[in-house]
Design a protein around this nucleic acid. Sequence first.
DNA 1: CCGCCCCCAGACAACGTTGTCATAGCGGCG
DNA 2: CGCCGCTATGACAACGTTGTCTGGGGGCGG
Lengths: 328, 328
Amino acid sequence: MNDVARLAGVSIKTVSRVVNDEAGVHPGTAERVLAAIEQLGFRSNVGARNLRRGSSTGTVGLILEDVANPFYSLLTRAVEEVARHHGRLVLTGSSDAEPARERDLALEFCARRVDGLLIVPTGLRHGYLVPEMRAGTPVVLLDRPAGDVVADTVLVDNIGGTAEAVRHLASFGHRRVAFLGDSPDIYTAVERLRGFREGCARAGLHYDEELVVMGPHDERSVAAALRRVLDGPNPATAVVSGNNRMTVYAVRALAHRPDRPALVGFDDFELADLLDPPVTVVAHDSAALGRAAAELLFGRLGGDSAPPRRVVLPVRLVPRGSGEVGLS
Amino acid sequence: MNDVARLAGVSIKTVSRVVNDEAGVHPGTAERVLAAIEQLGFRSNVGARNLRRGSSTGTVGLILEDVANPFYSLLTRAVEEVARHHGRLVLTGSSDAEPARERDLALEFCARRVDGLLIVPTGLRHGYLVPEMRAGTPVVLLDRPAGDVVADTVLVDNIGGTAEAVRHLASFGHRRVAFLGDSPDIYTAVERLRGFREGCARAGLHYDEELVVMGPHDERSVAAALRRVLDGPNPATAVVSGNNRMTVYAVRALAHRPDRPALVGFDDFELADLLDPPVTVVAHDSAALGRAAAELLFGRLGGDSAPPRRVVLPVRLVPRGSGEVGLS
DNA sequence: CCGCCCCCAGACAACGTTGTCATAGCGGCG
DNA sequence: CGCCGCTATGACAACGTTGTCTGGGGGCGG
């Protein structure tokens, strides 16, 4: 800016005025300044501006498990879009479901003075957020609440959705339904398991612990879990899988089995409708999740100081074929 | 920091020393300072630190078309990973294939003094990058070069891959192969079309313009394009589709056709192997693309000042079924 | 002709840090 | 006892901006 001022033969303050479109600069002067800016390729330093102004940095932080998962990448896109409408940029980070990494990312974001944080929380302890929130950084939690921190939270109806899946399968005559869930230290996994139990209870099914496997997270372990519930003496005839990854693994594992069980997956995924058979899912809109959370965040930034909200987004069962298999 | 200093009864400089783990602070003093930091929830302001130090902001910018596209979200994840190893955070933005948006994002990133930029360039004019590059911001282009700017570029072998797809189809007896490509102002679309022509030439096929459709970008227009090449008087018996989106649309459009043509898609995608028939693709590793570009960028940040490099990553044809259909 | 006001422009401080230099205190050694 | 050198600390300026205040000149009315 100094260089620009020198080149244009004005003071640095006048350059600042031109850069900020402030009124009261002689058009001729402004022209000279603009020419100098152009010539030197000057770009105002937003960091310094924010420091001086004490104003927003124009960024929000987004922390999730893994952008590579379509569920989160759709969510990310939605957040980006809302942020853009509010003139903000997005800092992203994947925690890989490691609490320490989530914490490091969040604190790093805060040190960079993001205007707000959107977090898909991992693990159980989130007390590290308290000082930041007290310091005025609004935090919105997505997809899961944080056990020990009260903040705005946007969830999907995990319990209702899983219960609905069970009801659906029971309506086709299934009495022995298995549940494959994620690790029990993940909130959504626990909720969906609860929904599963509830669904069993409502449909008058016996809840059999033998048919519940929590924790398999890769293709091999999902396949093993399926063998366990399908190859026993009293096998399941239908399966509810707890998230999009597991559903895909399950489809893969079941592809070459002669006696395929009925399958309903939690989370929709691309091409589910083109598989053979098309996969019935409990769908929810992850873009809507991101949008709702981001809107909530910007609401807070806009001055909304109502008590923390908890929003639960609806899910809906999409029958496609894999879940409408009767008993053979 | 002032408050911390006051509370600990030391000068602000001593607080700075403690925060930065500088040697030569009395342990007792350090303890008092740390206690004050804890009590006040003090978090050092990275922006101010960078301003004073004139050092890196510890961020890199990543601009691509759309994070929601799995191709880009895998890439994003790889970039995040490399950045993390180099202690950097990632600012992301989706350009939606709009040059103006790409430009705005890039300049916004530069105003925030990112250490470097990774860009999947959209459109043909990227001169706006020149001042930034001259100012010392390294730029690496991914997936496509920028017509009018010389910078490090990481590409995939578009021509070779598409030619290979044609060769593969011809080896199953196909003589009339159609090509569905993206809009011709996208570099990869043009390259793949060139690869298609080259493949036709090498396989001794007549290159028939009637069988080439460039530009369809949603489900409806892909379906229309397919009708055009399949329902004419002299129809195609095989189709090469130009990217992952189009392949998926094509699969959907072909799902209920009795006379399905052979199909090879450019870009691999999840579940391609589970469709019926499984989809043969020209696969490349988008994570490797992101990794290579990020490594290149950090190499530049590490002082590598060799002339701009152009890296071309290999592709490989993955036969799965849809491309191994002979003539009926 | 004088005084006032308006239009432009610049001087200066401050935002939150940190690098540089200065200084106070203290123990040891000749 | 005086000097040296070391340790622990602080004062100050500067990073690149911008808000506030001040000042010079010109036009206009009295």
